[in-house]
């Protein structure tokens, strides 16, 4: 691991990015490729609840949902993980025992990240000790915008160290980074500091993930892979509420990083309501009727 050479980080032209993204969105995904895509998307979901009002009970209900998305639909995959606050990890872990569904925990003073390094590290350790398989940390955006890139890098590297076996997803909170150039720069720092995944957003800031920022991050992953042969994962989070948007992300993934990234080990959706929308679409694919959300559980 080493600090990236920020002088050689490619510049980003936003208009060009938006034009490219527009092309992904224009792909028409129908019939069997749609079913395939929806199954894939479902399997990549980190079913998420990150509220102050979360209780063991609602976390349990969500875990049950994660494991029983819609039992009447045959052959659908389970979600990849649930994503909760550190204090909820043990309940989730218990509920998902025996399943292959991971438990991811946000940490490091989520969502603002405005805590001391000590607090961040103990927050992370706590989540890991509680059994979290994955840690979703936030970077210090204030430090980043102030140009203290070394600080940001060191912090990520320190968190990575205490993660142990848990996978580290680094949330850039792109909605606060102002420009796509910054998104690219932050991606490089996170990747070089040891991120297993880079993630767009906390979901607490508007805008959350956009196709444009995700595209920039995918390109950072691509360039890193070309140089090192190491595959970094990607997790767009927030704002991905419909099947249509999820499929657009998958098209983008498919045409940017290719089939090796088209699985839950390297791509996740951070979302809460996406699963039900996909289920509705799959049900519709099967029955031929448009569905009502009332037929799908809202846990």
């Amino acid at each position: 691991m080493s600090f990236p050479n920020l002088l050689t980080v490619p510049k980003i032209d936003k208009t060009g990015v938006e034009e490219r993204v527009n092309r992904f969105c224009k792909r028409s995904i129908k019939n069997s490729s749609k079913t395939h895509g929806l199954h894939l998307a479902l399997s990549m979901i980190d079913l998420t609840t990150l509220d102050g009002k979360d209780t063991p009970e609602n976390v349990k209900r969500m875990c049950y949902k994660a494991n029983h998305l819609h039992d009447s639909l045959q052959g659908i995959p389970k979600v990849a993980a649930v994503c909760v606050y550190p204090t909820m990890v043990k309940y989730a872990k218990k509920e998902l025992k025996g399943t292959k569904i991971n438990v991811a925990s946000v940490a490091t003073g989520f969502p603002s990240g405005q805590s001391s390094l000590d607090v961040k590290l103990s927050d992370t350790k706590f989540a890991v000790n509680e059994g979290a398989d994955e840690i979703d940390m936030v970077i210090s955006r204030g430090k980043f915008l102030a140009g203290e890139y070394n600080f940001v890098y060191d912090e990520i590297a320190s968190v990575k160290e205490v993660c142990g076996k848990a996978h580290l997803k680094v949330i850039l909170e792109t909605g606060e980074l102002d420009t796509l150039d910054n998104v690219r720069k932050a991606s490089e720092i996170a990747i070089y500091a040891g991120a297993d995944f880079i993630k767009t957003s906390t979901g607490k800031i508007n805008p959350a993930s956009t196709m444009s920022v995700a595209y920039v991050m995918l390109n950072a992953i691509k360039d890193y892979y070309k140089q090192t042969g190491i595959k970094i994962g990607m997790k767009p989070a927030g704002g991905i509420s419909s099947s249509k948007i999820a499929l657009q992300y998958l098209v983008m993934l498919n045409e940017t990083l290719g089939h090796e990234w088209m699985n839950k080990d390297l791509f996740r959706f951070g979302a809460s309501s996406l699963a039900n929308d996909i289920l509705m679409q799959l049900q519709r694919q099967e029955s031929g009727y448009y569905e009502s959300i009332d037929y799908f559980s809202k846990d």
Binding site: R27, S28, I29, K30, N31, S32, S33, K34, H36, G37, L40, K222, Y225, K226, Q227, T228, G229, L250, V251, N254, E255, L257, G258, H259, E260, M262
Partner: peptide, 16 residues
């Protein structure tokens, strides 16, 4: 340099 393989992509069925 590692190569990205975009050839065996998730094939989109025709959308005529």
């Amino acid at each position: 340099m590692s190569n990205i393989d975009l050839n065996k992509i998730w094939n989109y069925t025709t959308a005529k």
